[in-house]
C-alpha cells in the first residue's frame, strides 16, 4: 500500500515524496484522459501539468486518499475552461497504431483503412462515451477503474461503452 492509498487519515500536507508518487501514478492516465477529451495533445499535456501544479498548491487542504479523484476533477474543469476560452472543438484523434503481430501487407492496408474510419468516427461519439471507450481500449482500463476515475457508477460506464460501440458500429456498417 502506497502512501497515497491510506484512507481516512487526517489532512497532512503532501510531502515532496508523496507528490512524486502521485505524479508517477496519475500523470499519464490524466494526460491521456485529457487527450481523449480534447483531441489536442499539447493542450492535454499543459492541462495535466496545470492540474499537478494545482495539486501542489492545495496540498495542505486535500485528503490524501482522494488525490486521484481530485486530479481528475481539476483536470476536467481546467480542460473545459480551456476549450471554452479558446473556442476549440473536438477534431480528430491522431492515435498511433502499434501492431505486434506480423500480417500480410494487404491485411495491414485493410486495417489501416479500418483504423482511419474508426478514428474519424470518434468525433461523432458523445464526449462521455468517447472518453470511456478510449480509456478502456487505449488505456486498457477496466470498467470499474474508469468508474472510479470519473466518479461514475459501473452501470453508467457500461452504458457509455455500449453507446460508443453502437455509434461506431453504425458508422462502420454505413461505410463498408
Amino acid at each position: 500500500m502506497g502512501i497515497l492509498d491510506k484512507k481516512g487519515g487526517k489532512k497532512e500536507k503532501l510531502t515532496l515524496q508523496e507528490y512524486e508518487e502521485a505524479f508517477d501514478l496519475y500523470y499519464t492516465p490524466i494526460r491521456n484522459f485529457l487527450y481523449f477529451k480534447t483531441s489536442q495533445a499539447e493542450l492535454a499535456e499543459d492541462v495535466a501539468q496545470d492540474a499537478f501544479v494545482k495539486l501542489w498548491e492545495t496540498r495542505a487542504k486535500i485528503d490524501k486518499s482522494s488525490i486521484k479523484a481530485y486530479l481528475y476533477t481539476i483536470a476536467n474543469n481546467l480542460a473545459i475552461n480551456q476549450l471554452k476560452r479558446d473556442q476549440l472543438k473536438y477534431k480528430f484523434l491522431n492515435l498511433q497504431v502499434e501492431r505486434k503481430e506480423k500480417k500480410t501487407p494487404q491485411y495491414l492496408m485493410e486495417m489501416q483503412e479500418f483504423d482511419q474510419k474508426l478514428q474519424d468516427t470518434l468525433a461523432k461519439i458523445p464526449e462521455g462515451a468517447r472518453e470511456v471507450f478510449l480509456m478502456n481500449r487505449v488505456e486498457g482500463l477496466k470498467y470499474r477503474e474508469i468508474a472510479e476515475r470519473l466518479g461514475l457508477s459501473m452501470k453508467a460506464i457500461e452504458k457509455r461503452m455500449s453507446r460508443a460501440l453502437a455509434i461506431l458500429r453504425e458508422e462502420i456498417n454505413r461505410k463498408v
Binding site: 491522431n94 498511433q96 502499434e98 478510449l134 481500449r137 487505449v138 460501440l165 458500429r169 462502420i172
Partner: peptide, 17 residues
C-alpha cells in the same frame, strides 16, 4: 464481428505523445 474488430483495432491504438 464488427464489435470484435472495433475493439481489436482500438486496442492497438496508442496516444501520440
Amino acid at each position: 464481428e464488427i464489435d470484435k474488430r472495433i475493439l481489436e483495432a482500438a486496442g492497438n491504438w496508442k496516444t501520440p505523445f
